[in-house]
Measured scan of single mutants.
Amino acid sequence: TEEVEKIVRELQKRGVSQEEIQRILKRNGIDPRDVEHVVRRLR
């Protein structure tokens, strides 16, 4: 989703690792598959 993408991009800008990003998003109830998808697209 748009929202997830924004969050991921923001965290990446701050130098947060992929694993940490995924952990944060999972904690916020976001589907890990969505996270994977977004992270892969932004690489």
Rank of each mutant, 00 (worst) to 15 (best):
T1H: 10
T1Y: 14
T1V: 11
E2Q: 10
E2I: 10
E2K: 12
E2L: 09
E2T: 06
E2Y: 11
E2C: 14
E2S: 11
E3A: 10
E3K: 10
E3L: 12
E3W: 13
E3V: 09
E3D: 11
V4W: 05
V4Q: 02
V4I: 14
E5L: 09
E5Y: 14
E5K: 05
E5S: 05
K6F: 06
K6M: 10
K6S: 06
K6C: 05
K6P: 02
I7D: 01
I7F: 08
I7Q: 08
I7C: 04
I7G: 01
V8C: 03
V8I: 11
V8H: 01
V8N: 00
V8F: 13
R9H: 04
R9A: 06
R9P: 00
E10K: 10
E10I: 10
E10N: 08
E10V: 09
E10S: 08
E10A: 11
L11G: 00
L11S: 01
L11R: 00
L11F: 06
L11D: 00
L11H: 01
Q12W: 15
Q12A: 11
Q12M: 15
Q12Y: 15
K13Q: 11
K13Y: 07
K13C: 03
K13D: 08
R14L: 11
R14W: 12
R14A: 12
R14T: 07
R14I: 11
G15M: 04
G15L: 05
G15E: 03
G15Q: 04
G15P: 02
G15D: 03
G15V: 02
V16C: 01
V16Q: 04
V16S: 05
V16G: 02
S17M: 06
S17N: 09
S17C: 00
S17L: 07
S17T: 11
Q18I: 15
Q18K: 12
Q18A: 13
Q18V: 15
E19P: 06
E19M: 11
E19S: 12
E19G: 11
E19F: 11
E20F: 06
E20N: 10
E20V: 08
E20R: 08
E20M: 07
E20A: 10
E20L: 09
I21K: 00
I21G: 00
I21Y: 03
Q22C: 05
Q22M: 15
Q22E: 13
Q22V: 15
Q22W: 11
R23A: 12
R23Y: 10
R23P: 00
R23W: 09
I24C: 04
I24M: 07
I24S: 02
I24R: 06
L25C: 01
L25W: 00
L25M: 07
L25H: 00
L25D: 00
K26F: 14
K26V: 15
K26M: 14
K26R: 10
R27V: 12
R27G: 09
R27K: 11
R27Y: 09
R27L: 13
R27N: 12
N28V: 13
N28M: 14
N28T: 12
N28E: 13
N28F: 14
N28Y: 13
G29R: 02
G29E: 03
G29I: 02
G29V: 01
G29N: 05
I30Y: 15
I30D: 01
I30H: 12
I30V: 13
I30A: 07
D31W: 01
D31K: 03
D31V: 02
D31R: 04
P32A: 05
P32D: 09
P32M: 05
P32G: 04
R33S: 06
R33F: 05
R33E: 09
D34A: 08
D34V: 15
D34Y: 13
D34H: 10
D34P: 01
D34N: 04
V35C: 03
V35P: 01
E36R: 05
E36L: 06
E36V: 04
E36P: 02
E36I: 05
H37P: 02
H37R: 14
H37M: 13
H37Q: 14
V38H: 03
V38M: 05
V38P: 00
V38W: 08
V38D: 01
V39A: 04
V39C: 15
V39F: 15
V39H: 02
R40M: 05
R40F: 03
R40C: 03
R41F: 12
R41Q: 13
R41C: 12
R41D: 14
R41L: 14
R41G: 12
R41Y: 11
L42A: 04
L42R: 03
L42W: 02
L42D: 05
L42G: 06
R43N: 15
R43A: 14
R43Y: 15
R43K: 12
